[in-house]
């Protein structure tokens, strides 16, 4: 049986979703999996919602995840988590920060987003991004810290992560990123 796992990463332009998904895909490749990653770039870069599909296993065909089939939904913005919920199923693990970013022309953030997540998601990991940012000391590395947290949910050896992070982060920032990754990995979340 060819079992393929699906991770959907979503957020808002500028939050480092592309880098995080690149690191994840590389780490999976270095662990010996077949892996495919799909995203659309172009117009959506300009403040729009950003997403990246990652699929891995023994043999992967389609680079895109079907609705309901994301084993993990990983999100760096609360409203985006809800927006992409239809890609998760009832058993899926949902990792989301509590970050709230208003769309450019919107003044008031919609009500009840967190409640909706708590109501709908059986396996919800809500991350207090402010506390985590304080712990790593720099919000710039939050995306990599969150990968550290994600790493506790998937089967990827630590040296694959090291190699992937080193390859993908800007020169000179590896140490800081690795520290953020470890901090995220050891971070205690409010699991529901």
């Amino acid at each position: 049986m060819n079992s393929v796992l699906n991770i959907l990463m979503v957020g808002v332009g500028g939050q480092g979703i592309m880098m995080a998904s690149d690191i994840l895909a590389l780490a999976l490749m270095y662990s010996g999996y077949d892996v495919k990653k799909s995203e659309i770039h172009g117009m959506s870069q300009r403040g729009g919602s950003v997403f990246s599909h990652i699929r891995y296993g023994e043999k992967v065909y389609s680079p895109v995840i079907s609705e309901g089939e994301a084993d993990i939904l990983f999100s760096t913005e609360e409203m985006e988590t809800v927006r992409w919920l239809n890609y998760a199923g009832s058993e899926s693990c949902i990792i989301s920060t509590k970050t709230k970013i208003n769309p450019a022309e919107v003044k008031e953030y919609p009500q009840g987003v967190e409640d909706e997540l708590k109501k709908k998601c059986k396996n919800l990991v809500l991350v207090d991004h402010e506390a985590l940012s304080r712990e790593i000391g720099n919000i710039k590395f939050l995306n990599v810290a969150l990968l550290g947290l994600l790493s506790t949910h998937i089967d990827v050896p630590v040296d694959s992560w090291e190699k992937a992070i080193e390859e993908r982060v800007p020169a000179g920032s590896y140490e800081a990123n690795w520290k953020a990754f470890i901090t995220g990995k050891e971070y205690k979340t409010e699991e529901s």
Binding site: G47, G68, M79, V82, L85, N86, G89, G112, E116, C121
Partner: peptide
Amino acid sequence: GLKTSLKLPPRPPL
């Protein structure tokens, strides 16, 4: 897929 009835404002390119 999980369903939600929460109305969310879109995030178009700008």
